[in-house]
Write a protein that binds this DNA or RNA. Structure first.
Length: 209
DNA sequence: TCATTGATGCGCT
DNA sequence: GCGCATCAATGAT
């Protein structure tokens, strides 16, 4: 693939988080490493935050970890989960309540730099088999490992190198499906457990789980 | 294909 | 100390 990536501008993110989440599907996460660009098309996201969302890390206010979620929309919020994995979020505007919100990037379809992504993931087997391609970016921890995203990029503006989100193809709304978010604890999240705040590209081969 | 489990760090109570 | 917005390997269907 030989194309140039044009970053989305800040205005893209200055909207309600659910509108941003829907519109992020089809766009491209691009990462410069030492050897060039690795990139993938966004096929799965989840919204966190807003008025009252106990599943959101910032629900109880700002801490050292969640500080960047209170920063400018369009910046990255990167956190570590389960001690071993990092997860990439896009910061969204705060609503009338002043509570922070963000969009978790859960899965990408490989577009560029597959060889280097496979190496960082430690995958074995045929480099370009469907099996390898599906295992490469199909989860929030996986895509961060593949794209060399860690907490050093927390707070990074996502319209600048070395990590940015670029314009891809619009996904027709008829091809977008919603579902409850993955991995929430019903005991701590209550009704929010069932909110259909996960947005996916229907029929994508590259979703998580 | 599905359920289970171990690896592993740290934010929060 | 407890409990995770996870993943890969394992073993049972």
């Amino acid at each position: 693939m030989n194309r140039s990536f044009v970053p989305l501008d800040r205005a893209f993110y200055e909207r309600d988080a659910h509108d941003v989440a829907r519109d992020l599907l089809g766009h491209v996460v691009a990462r410069h490493d030492g050897d060039g660009i690795c990139a993938g098309r966004i096929v799965e996201v989840e919204v966190y935050g807003g008025a009252d969302d106990p599943a959101c890390h910032a629900d109880r206010g700002m801490t050292a970890r969640t500080r960047s979620m209170y920063g400018d929309p369009g910046h990255a919020y990167v956190y570590r989960i389960y001690g071993m994995y990092d997860c990439l979020n896009v910061v969204c505007p705060r609503g009338d309540t002043g509570k922070a919100s963000a969009i978790l990037i859960r899965a990408l379809e490989p577009l560029m730099g597959t060889t280097r992504m496979v190496r960082r993931r430690g995958l074995s087997g045929p480099l370009d088999s469907n099996k390898t391609r599906r295992a490469l970016l199909s989860g929030p921890g996986k895509l961060c490992q593949a794209l060399a995203i860690d907490r050093g990029l927390d707070g990074h503006p996502l319209h600048e190198h070395p990590l940015f989100i670029a314009a891809g193809e619009d996904v027709p709304s008829a091809r977008i499906r919603t579902s409850p978010r993955i991995g929430l604890n019903p005991r701590t999240c209550g009704e929010a457990t069932d909110f259909e705040w996960r947005y996916v590209v229907e029929d994508s081969q590259y979703l998580s789980r």
